[in-house]
Amino acid sequence: MFEARLVQGNLLKKVLESLKDLLTEASWDCADTGIQLQAMDNSHVSLVSVQLRADGFDKFRCDRQLSMGMNLTSMSKILRCAANDDIITIKAQDQADNVTFVFESPNQEKVADYEMKLMNLDQEHLGIPETDYAAVIKLPAAEFQRIIKDLSQFGESVVISCTKEGVKFSAAGDIGVGNIKLAQTASVDKEEEAVTIEMQEPVTLTFACRYLNMFTKATCLAPQVTLSMSPEVPLVVEYKIGDMGHVRYYLAPKIED
């Protein structure tokens, strides 16, 4: 059987908030190392990869490899029934056709359980090559969300340009042009507010705002976001899940015809 117990249940709630606008259904692949999910959005423009390591759970048992196909809209509705401070346990028998979510209040006075049917999803997985990125930008997640929200008003694409001076986000459209430049922060008292850039070579790429906006739903998960870029390859937008994993969004660039 499979059983995973997470005392910090709100992490799982936030992971679903990070996925539900982009994916309607996906498979959770469970093994003794932990839980992974990989899926493309319906238009095959972006890919999401989630990893939750076993050692991040307070109890983790996975007797046999298990792939649980779920409707993420339904899963999100169930997880919304959990309070932010609830302990969340996910349980499933081997070869099961349903999964059970158990929500326990911290004082154990209230226990709720929800059973959801599983789906047969024959989702092929994509190989993601290890890449030594030309530029890796780390910035406050809320800052990135604000930049994308503001520039989305100007156009349907954002140009992200990284040089040694800093990183520039630009958008142009009918109402005009918007440019936001972020310089590397010199010294900050709080690490989480820093903007840091590791650059091997300058890189400039164009991406659709629609997907970047959906990625920033993961802002609730982590104080910082990491953007990794290389010429002519997908952008990686990564949010940590506590110290037990990550949500990684890959977005194909828009390329000159």
Partner: peptide, 14 residues
């Protein structure tokens, strides 16, 4: 004009 590429032209199916 720039055209949107698909993610599965960059990452191969396993």
């Amino acid at each position: 004009t720039k055209s949107q590429r698909s993610i599965d032209t960059f990452f191969k199916r396993k």
